[in-house]
């Protein structure tokens, strides 16, 4: 199959996701309001309670708002990843996922294209958030706005493929709502999004390990370092590894020979 066919297919899937995004304006606003509530209310309340020491990549004491900004960016991507998976469960229940899966183009390519389309939408949301966050003095170096992009692509892919795997394993839309509670909240709270890992270690060692091995921590920290034009090898390797695992599982989940579609009996 020619490369041009793959390009057209990819373009079509991204365009569809973008059009859906444009048509669903409330989705865009709710995606923005959520982190802004955390920033405007939660962070304002907690800044006096939590003292943040100087930790890399920061070179000086920072306000709590600055600390949680990368966590909130990752939160946008987490919600977006789960939401696009939610739409996949919806699509599958409604049938429109089938039209994609019966395309002659290899399924792994279709799924990765759909994932990247979701990542593209999440990146738009992140940049909109960063613009508004500058009102809270969250202003990274100019280069940070560019260097954050690769981190956003990888973390978006990781969280999107986790969602895609879950969508392949979930039978009905109703069940997915439960998984949202069991996945989103534990992932977000047991991570370095709201408090640094050393602070958690002071309180509870086992919780520290939970947070340390939480894939979401790797997304948050990759974003944090890249926002200040730095790279942390440990987190970068970790996030790539998690992305590969989740991607592999989600492609397997949608594989007609081995996947979950078959086990579910087409429901």
């Amino acid at each position: 199959m020619d490369l041009i066919i793959y390009i057209r297919c990819f373009k079509g899937i991204v365009l569809r996701e973008a059009l859906r995004f444009v048509h669903q304006k409330e989705r865009f606003f709710s995606a923005l309001v959520r982190p802004l509530v955390w920033l405007g209310i939660f962070a304002a309340g907690f800044r006096s309670v939590l003292g943040v020491a100087i930790i890399p990549p920061y070179e000086t004491y920072i306000p709590y708002e600055v600390y949680i900004a990368p966590g909130l960016i990752a939160m946008i991507q987490l919600f977006n990843g789960m939401q696009s998976s939610l739409s996949m469960v919806y699509d599958r229940e409604m049938g429109s996922m089938k039209t994609m899966l019966v395309s002659p183009i290899p399924r792994w390519f279709l799924l990765i294209s759909k994932l990247l389309a979701g990542v593209f939408v999440s990146i738009l949301q992140v940049y909109a958030f960063l613009m508004i966050a500058s009102l809270w003095d969250i202003i990274p170096p100019i280069s940070g706005y560019f260097t954050i992009l690769p981190a956003l692509i990888i973390s978006g892919l990781m969280l999107g493929s986790l969602g895609m795997f879950l969508s392949s394993a979930i039978k009905q839309l109703e069940n997915f709502a439960g998984v949202m509670n069991f996945v989103i909240f534990p992932m977000f709270f047991a991570s370095s999004a709201l408090y640094p890992l050393w602070k958690i270690e002071e309180t509870s060692e086992w919780l520290y390990y939970v947070c340390f091995y939480n894939p979401f921590t790797y997304a948050v920290e990759s974003i944090r370092f890249s926002l200040y034009s730095q790279i942390n090898i440990e987190y970068t390797i970790g996030i790539l590894l998690f992305t590969f695992i989740f991607l592999f599982l989600s492609i397997l989940g949608y594989d007609p020979a081995r996947g979950n579609l078959q086990k579910k009996g087409g429901k």
Binding site: D2, R8, C9, G12, I13, L15, R16, M100, L110
Partner: peptide
């Protein structure tokens, strides 16, 4: 838009 999306899934320009 629906028809264009389907065309792209088949690699049609």
């Amino acid at each position: 838009e629906n028809l264009q999306y389907h065309s792209s899934l088949h690699g049609i320009s």
